[in-house]
Design a binder for these strands. Structure first.
Lengths: 146, 146
DNA sequence: ACCGATTGTTGGTGTCACCATCAATCTTGT
DNA sequence: ACAAGATTGATGGTGACACCAACAATCGGT
């Protein structure tokens, strides 16, 4: 094998799960670098959900973002401490905490959104807009089938 | 928010890096379960490379599979102990170990390949064959651009 | 009132990608 | 030939992540 070239084995290049995983590694590396020093990807997902759906319990927050309840706790605590979220007990259900996005949290979300948008462009710079859309649509169908 | 439904925020469903990552989570979960008790995904990748390219140094093995040198060490050690790989010093370069796939390793690779193939079908059961191919092709272009 | 399910929370597990460092060895530029 | 720099295998470590088990408190249905 030539040390200067690094061809990928055909078995892997043709394997959907491998290709998807490698793409995720690249995507996460780019977004993590874009978000460095601000927030985590998980926190961005939670902010997005609260912005779109309004105040929510932590369990619902976890369900719609695919994040485990226990991991939601960590993220919520951190963002409450940063002033991005407000946490109050649900008067109608003693088990739940209702989590609300604060104005500072909304501002933060928009900041993160801009940083992440740049990362998307870099990630998909080999694809046309319609190809990018196609990838997103196809993968969403994969996700909906699971 | 309705507790019984879990819609994904539009900000996330439209975000390539998020969709790709969620697909990778599903893909890895399926392949890890399929491979449970046999080998890791990393080891499968190394076996694939050795099968296709023949004997190789550990550094080259890592380069063509995208695995860090330090992680290659762990995988190689495990598979040498299992009899799937043979490790000998490179007579032409005192720094290198040359790693070779044994017949038992080749058999093992084919076993793993069958297990992984099943996982692919489950992962992509919502897509037609041509759509599956399209996703793989598009993602490979993304990977080649990085 | 009881039973099962749900909620927030704690703690923990294993994997993964990645980094820094090291001694040994090779390659190069002069 | 020799110094300087790069490469190799290897060790150890880090942080993020996905996931799981358990718990007390609380709710819902019957």
């Amino acid at each position: 094998m030539d040390s200067t070239t690094h061809p990928t084995p055909a078995r892997l290049r043709v394997l959907p799960s491998w290709v998807i995983n490698q793409a995720a590694i690249a995507a996460n590396r780019l977004t993590d670098r874009a978000l460095a020093g601000t927030s985590s990807r998980r926190q961005f997902a939670m902010l997005s959900a609260l912005d779109e759906f309004g105040p929510s319990s932590q369990a619902d927050l976890g369900r719609c973002t695919g994040i485990d309840r226990s991991d939601v706790v960590t993220g919520v605590n951190a963002m409450v401490e940063q002033g991005f979220l407000q946490q109050r007990p649900d008067p109608a259900d003693g088990r739940r905490n209702i989590v609300t996005l604060t104005p500072a949290g909304k501002d933060h979300l928009e900041r993160l959104s801009a940083l992440i948008a740049d990362a998307q462009n870099e990630l998909l710079r080999a694809l046309s807009p319609s190809e990018s859309k196609m990838i997103v649509d196809l993968l969403n169908r994969v996700l909906d089938s699971g």
